[in-house]
């Protein structure tokens, strides 16, 4: 299969303090324990991402509000996500996410 990159601008305003309504997890290599990035673990029903409807479980988070997560460790990436949701996200009333999604081959 191949991988496609998608950019979503998800409005936060209607969900107020509930944020994006998504839980994300860190994945790593079983053998080397090298960090392999942050992935969507679940999309909370009724949350902003659910209403927006485009995000999928297991999408890999590439960037948030224009800040790349790729060169970061999973922990640094989580911190970046937390920070962008709290201050920047709410100030802008929306969060911009770039995700990578595996597209199954024919």
């Amino acid at each position: 299969g191949t991988r496609e990159f998608l950019t979503f601008e998800i409005p936060l305003n209607d969900s107020g303090s509930a944020g994006l309504g998504v839980s994300v997890k860190g994945n790593r290599s079983k053998e080397s324990h090298a960090d392999l990035g942050i992935f969507v673990k679940s999309i909370i029903t009724g949350g902003a991402a659910c209403k927006d409807g485009r995000l999928r479980v297991n999408d890999k988070l590439i960037a948030v509000n224009g800040e790349s997560l790729l060169e970061k460790t999973n922990q640094e990436a989580m911190e970046t996500l937390r920070k962008s949701m709290s201050i920047e996200g709410n100030k802008r009333g929306m969060i911009q996410l770039i995700v990578a999604r595996r597209v199954p081959g024919r």
Partner: peptide, 12 residues
């Protein structure tokens, strides 16, 4: 697959 969760989960 050679992938496992590293145990950290946060809600956004």
């Amino acid at each position: 697959r050679n992938l496992e969760e590293d145990g950290t989960v946060i809600t956004l």
